[in-house]
């Protein structure tokens, strides 16, 4: 479980860093092309938008691994340790269900439905662009499992 987590962390963080850096260059290039070369580009704005959503989704998966998403903690902290443990486990379970049912299953159906639709300016399949939803959903599922495993191990020690 720990190796899976380490591997996922490495994979997703590298992906996000590269994508983010590329995004900065892409938008800078777009501004420059518009102002200095008088050659506006429709391609770059579309590409930037999709890279950005991919960054957001895969980055979100990464942050689920770190348990970094915002939550309201102060009520939970009022409970006993045992109840807190159950609530934490439940919280991971809800996250897993959402990622599995909505992002993975719903996402796959969305990808299949839109596979033959093409994006006008990028010339690629819309279904391919949407595939970030099920993929990041899968990563969140894996992270939730890893988090639940870690929780139960902490409980035992």
């Amino acid at each position: 479980m720990t190796t899976i987590r380490t591997l996922l962390n490495k994979l997703l963080s590298t992906f996000c860093i590269i994508l983010f850096a590329f995004l900065v260059l892409l938008v800078t290039w777009q501004v420059a092309s518009r102002y200095f070369f008088n050659a506006p580009s429709s391609f770059s704005e579309e590409l930037a938008k999709y890279c950005f959503v991919w960054l957001a989704l895969f980055g979100s998966a990464f942050v689920f691994g770190e348990k970094g998403h915002m939550a309201i903690e102060f009520l939970k902290e009022k409970f006993s340790k045992a109840t807190q443990y159950r609530l934490n486990l439940f919280s991971e379970l809800v996250t897993l269900l959402f990622a599995l049912i909505v992002m993975l299953i719903g996402g796959i159906q969305l990808v299949l439905m839109t596979w033959s639709q093409t994006s006008a300016s990028l010339g690629v399949s819309i279904g391919f662009l949407y595939s970030a939803v099920p993929l990041s959903g899968l990563f969140i599922v894996l992270y939730s499992l890893a988090n639940m495993y870690t929780l139960s191990k902490e409980k035992r020690t």
Partner: peptide, 14 residues
């Protein structure tokens, strides 16, 4: 879901 400490995004999404 919010009150029991589920991440805000997951609570809203669910």
């Amino acid at each position: 879901l919010l009150v029991i400490g589920v991440p805000i995004s997951i609570s809203v999404g669910f």
